[in-house]
Design a protein around this nucleic acid. Structure first.
Length: 511
RNA sequence: GCCGCGUUGGUCAAGAGGUUAAGACGCCUCCCUUUCACGGAGGAAUCACGGGUUCGAGUCCCGUACGUGGUACCA
């Protein structure tokens, strides 16, 4: 149905007010996939029209997250482009012309009501049936605006520099409908839509005006956004109709919301249930409130993108693991679901584990190394690390898990899970390990099989079942009941270290 | 309250009038493994409800319920 004579152009338009959460990244992702699939352009526009909510560092943070995810924009304040500026605060002057144009055509009007007067209006007209009265066709004629005042009065107020806003004049008794790429036909009764503010008293446009003007000016062909915007879509449709004509309007797609355990996913859910909701760590500079990110939690960007893509979309087959390129190839907007999906952290970890398992040690090494270094494991030999990574990655759903699963290859365990062996610990076992040390010491060929043979032969001589001895050996070398085959570990940490660990464990166990 | 949107196992979901209603996560059992995982084999659990339409409905229509979003000079 896309008879695009025009090149596909999509945009993601966040406001720089804080961290970028799951839903935001998924909106970016679907935008990006759609654009790349159709050989189009992905634009990032910063919607910073609310100056009271501006947060230092939030814009840079957005770039960082997108970069980490591997879904960078083609055009943005940072990346440039021919439709700039890409920051709405720098486009302030553009919006005025359009607001004026609307006023002249009778589709908008000046309103001089103060915030207190609006509050008063809401109090006065509040009833049980209508707990939140709107500034609409019925109310507007009772307020202070260019519809109720004479031209002279309006002129005077304007001259005297009284604060004012511009509101859209929503028509009465009209059905406003449009076709959404995901929801198909959606319609609204204009009588339930209120006269939204278009231009604020500080001269900044609201989202409603800005999104329409900028989508037009930036030649956006497809506008994807979260479903929370669906309710205000009629305002935008009307604006398109009045300003540029419906034929110019981009195709809308209102994406289903990502839900938390209770309602729309929020950063509170993360703290409450113990999972990240932001792409990367974020500290709010205003109150130093810290929110954990998927990156720092130990997620691979490939996995993060993959799990997000599958939250609300699939290609109709059983395939669940997709690379970014596969997603670009397979993505189609008409397979995006209508209903919101609840985020499941367990499944998210499964995706990450799958990606870790299929990633090469080459790729994983630079990611794992700093994690170990941070926990004061130094002088890491990279080729040795790579061997270890291949050996333990099937036990590591998160990158952080590599510490527990591989630290004992580099340093002796600080604590031994002696409870696992103590109950069955006897003289003969102590004797076995003492003798074992001597024999290992004399072993000429230090290999997994030779160590194992030595171990088993001695066990047979001492008449102890090897199985009785393997767990103690593991505890001595690893510290706990986990990790790969114990003789493999002995081989890798080398002879001296193996003997050293057995001996020091013997002291603890015999005491 | 009003308006919009939605509703297939606990979660993600396939399904476009006729299927024993896929698959995945999680959970349980077993096998492999004298550790933990990985891998393999099984298992429990579902079409929100009520009416229609139809020979036949998870699929179409209408209600109801529930969920969710909006109802700001926030996006």
């Amino acid at each position: 149905m896309l008879l695009n004579t025009a090149k596909v152009r999509v945009r993601f338009a966040p406001s720089p007010t804080g961290g970028l959460h799951l839903g935001g990244v998924r909106t970016v992702l679907y935008n990006y996939l759609f654009a790349k699939k159709h050989g189009g352009t992905f634009v990032l526009r910063i919607e910073d029209t609310d100056q009271t909510r501006f947060v230092e560092g939030a814009e840079q943070y957005i770039y960082d997250c997108l970069k980490w995810c591997g879904i960078e924009p083609d055009e943005s304040p940072l990346h440039g482009g021919e439709f700039g500026p890409y920051k709405q605060s720098e486009r302030k002057s553009k919006y005025w012309d359009y607001a004026l144009q609307l006023i002249e055509a009778g589709h908008a009007y000046y309103a001089f009501d103060t915030p207190q007067e609006l509050e008063q209006m809401r109090m006065d007209f509040k009833t049980n049936e209508n707990p939140s009265p709107q500034y609409d066709a019925r109310i507007r004629m009772k307020m202070k605006n260019s519809l109720t005042l004479t031209a002279n009065e309006v002129e005077k107020l304007l001259q005297e520099k009284n604060p004012f806003v511009v509101r859209i004049k929503i028509p009465e008794n009209e059905i406003i409908s449009f076709s959404d790429l995901i929801h198909h036909e959606v319609s609204f009764d204009s009588n339930v839509v209120d006269d939204k503010v278009l231009l604020k008293a500080d001269g900044m446009p609201t989202y409603h005006l800005a999104v329409v003007v900028d989508d037009f000016l930036m030649k956006i062909t497809h506008a994807f956004r979260g479903e929370e915007w669906l309710s205000s879509a009629p305002v935008h449709i009307l604006l398109w109709k009045y300003l540029f004509g419906l034929d110019e309007m981009p195709q809308w797609a209102h994406l289903p919301l990502i839900m938390g355990p209770s309602g729309k996913l929020s950063k509170r859910d993360g703290a409450k249930y113990g999972f990240p909701v932001y792409a990367m760590n974020w500290t709010d500079p205003r109150n130093n409130e810290f929110t954990e990110g998927f990156k720092e939690k130990g997620f691979l960007p490939e996995a993060f993108i993959n799990l997000l893509a599958m939250l609300g979309w699939n290609n109709g087959t059983e395939q669940e693991l997709f690379s970014l390129n596969e997603l670009i190839d397979q993505f189609s907007i008409d397979r995006v679901h209508k209903s919101g999906a609840k985020f499941d952290y367990e499944k998210a970890k499964w995706f990450n584990h799958e990606w870790i398992k299929k990633s090469s040690s080459e790729l994983l090494c630079p990611l794992v190394k700093p994690i170990l270094e941070e926990k004061s494991i130094s002088n890491i030999n990279e080729s040795f690390l790579k061997t270890i990574i291949d050996l333990v990655k099937e036990r590591c759903p998160l990158l952080d898990d590599f510490f527990q699963q591989s630290s004992y290859f580099f340093i002796a365990p600080e604590e031994l899970d002696t409870e696992a062996v103590k109950p069955k610990w006897k003289e003969d076992k102590a004797g076995f390990f003492n003798e074992m040390c001597n024999q290992l010491n004399q072993l000429n060929v230090w290999e997994t099989t030779s160590i194992e043979n030595c171990f088993k032969t001695l066990a047979a001589e001492k008449n102890i079942k090897p199985g009785e001895l393997q767990l103690p050996m593991r505890i001595m070398l690893v510290g706990g009941k986990f990790g790969p085959a114990v003789f493999e570990i002995a081989y890798l940490i080398a002879k001296e270290e193996t003997i050293k660990r057995i001996k020091s464990a013997l002291i603890i166990l015999n005491s």
